[in-house]
Amino acid sequence: MALRSIVLVALLIGVATPAMAAEARQSTFGRLPDGRAVPAVTLTNKAGVSATVIAYGATLQSLMIPDRNGKRADVMLGYDKIDDYLKTPQYFGATVGRFANRIARGRFTLDGRDYRVPVNNGKNSLHGGTIGFDKVLWSVVSVKSGPAASVTLRYVSKDGDQGYPGTMTVDATYSLDENNALSIQYTATTDTPTLANITNHAYWNLSGEGSANGAMGLMVTIPANSYLPTDDGAIPTGEFRPVAGTAFDFRVPHAVGERVRDASDRQLVYGRGYDHNWVIGRSVTPSEHLMAKVYDPASGRGFELWSNQPGLQFYSGNFLDGTSSGKAKRIYREGDAIVMEPQIFPDTPNQPAFGSARLAPGQTYRNIMTYRLTTGQGAARPASSRR
């Protein structure tokens, strides 16, 4: 009997283990004009969630999530051909850096030396410059199936790239587990002091990227008591302004579109909506903390966003202008998606009160973000059971 029991247990283990494993599958998304292939890796779990990452821009190209009725939809704005990423770049799902967000006038001083980086957003530098991390081909380092399926991509940014000092080696790891947690981790090292602020620029429409519903009905919660007001060029003024009594107070849930067109608030006029950094903390923390909650009442889909970063850039898709059409062959218009980017504060190199963006040799930069997805059929395991 004992031998029979052992055999039975072994058989059960052999059956159960593959069923619990999330799968990673590699393919080719297309080719660049110079002939280089663009690898794609799709991560899939048993709950019907799947994420596709392409090596161009280390980009989250697709995220399929079931709704409360089990119907799957792609909730990421983006393209189904590499040619469109090249012809009409919009940062859809891309990794942005070396310095995400803006640097005023494309200038900063580091260790007593002045640097200039490309100005590509009015008078300012945005998302690393004209050829940032979103516009280069990354290398696939590893692809793994298992309890958490993952792909790790790498890019080596040479000394002087876009005007930044030091050779920086950056890894981007996407992983999807069976608890419906999609994680993105960025790490970076350098051989010379430089700046580091790397994040992901995913555009979310939880009703589906081809849905006419857009993102204005999404319910958003941000646990921040203050935010960073900006000038008319989206550069923070340096003030930490309380959210209380303003359209920027998301400490209790509000629909994105509820107050976004309030012309009495000059900040909404400057940004044509929300395009600001909320202050979750004042420094990077060792572990992740809650940054935001987003829920779509129409589909039942949603997520909690956790990260170790102090700031959250919340952008309400104000500059989607109808010049791009996505995977469902629908034109993307203003308000069709939202972006939530965990990061250090914009223009930190020029604003000492914001802390430091300096990365030195021997240090490792880390930005860890986890989207705990609600599928309508279930959600990611709560934080207390994940640590």
Score class of each variant (00 low, 15 high):
239 E>S: 07
240 F>E: 06
240 F>L: 11
241 R>N: 03
241 R>S: 09
241 R>L: 06
241 R>G: 00
242 P>E: 05
242 P>K: 03
242 P>D: 04
242 P>H: 02
242 P>N: 05
243 V>E: 06
243 V>Y: 07
243 V>F: 05
244 A>T: 11
244 A>G: 10
244 A>W: 00
245 G>V: 00
245 G>R: 02
246 T>H: 05
247 A>N: 12
247 A>L: 03
248 F>D: 02
248 F>M: 12
249 D>V: 00
249 D>K: 03
250 F>R: 03
251 R>V: 02
251 R>N: 07
251 R>M: 06
251 R>Y: 02
252 V>G: 08
252 V>P: 00
252 V>L: 12
253 P>Q: 08
253 P>G: 02
253 P>M: 06
254 H>G: 06
254 H>C: 09
254 H>L: 12
255 A>I: 09
255 A>R: 13
256 V>P: 00
256 V>R: 01
257 G>E: 05
257 G>H: 04
257 G>P: 01
257 G>K: 09
257 G>N: 07
258 E>A: 14
258 E>R: 10
259 R>P: 00
259 R>S: 11
260 V>T: 10
261 R>A: 13
261 R>M: 12
261 R>H: 10
262 D>M: 08
262 D>C: 04
263 A>R: 15
263 A>F: 01
263 A>Q: 13
263 A>H: 11
264 S>C: 08
264 S>A: 14
264 S>M: 11
265 D>F: 09
265 D>L: 10
265 D>G: 07
266 R>F: 00
266 R>C: 00
266 R>V: 00
267 Q>V: 00
267 Q>A: 03
267 Q>S: 03
268 L>C: 08
268 L>I: 00
269 V>A: 15
269 V>R: 15
270 Y>Q: 09
270 Y>P: 01
270 Y>K: 13
270 Y>N: 14
272 R>I: 12
272 R>E: 14
273 G>L: 10
274 Y>L: 11
274 Y>A: 12
276 H>S: 11
276 H>C: 06
276 H>R: 13
277 N>M: 10
278 W>R: 11
278 W>D: 08
279 V>A: 12
279 V>Y: 01
279 V>L: 10
279 V>T: 13
280 I>R: 08
280 I>M: 13
280 I>H: 02
281 G>Q: 12
281 G>Y: 06
281 G>F: 05
281 G>W: 07
282 R>F: 01
283 S>Y: 10
283 S>A: 15
284 V>S: 13
284 V>C: 12
284 V>F: 06
284 V>E: 14
284 V>G: 12
284 V>Q: 15
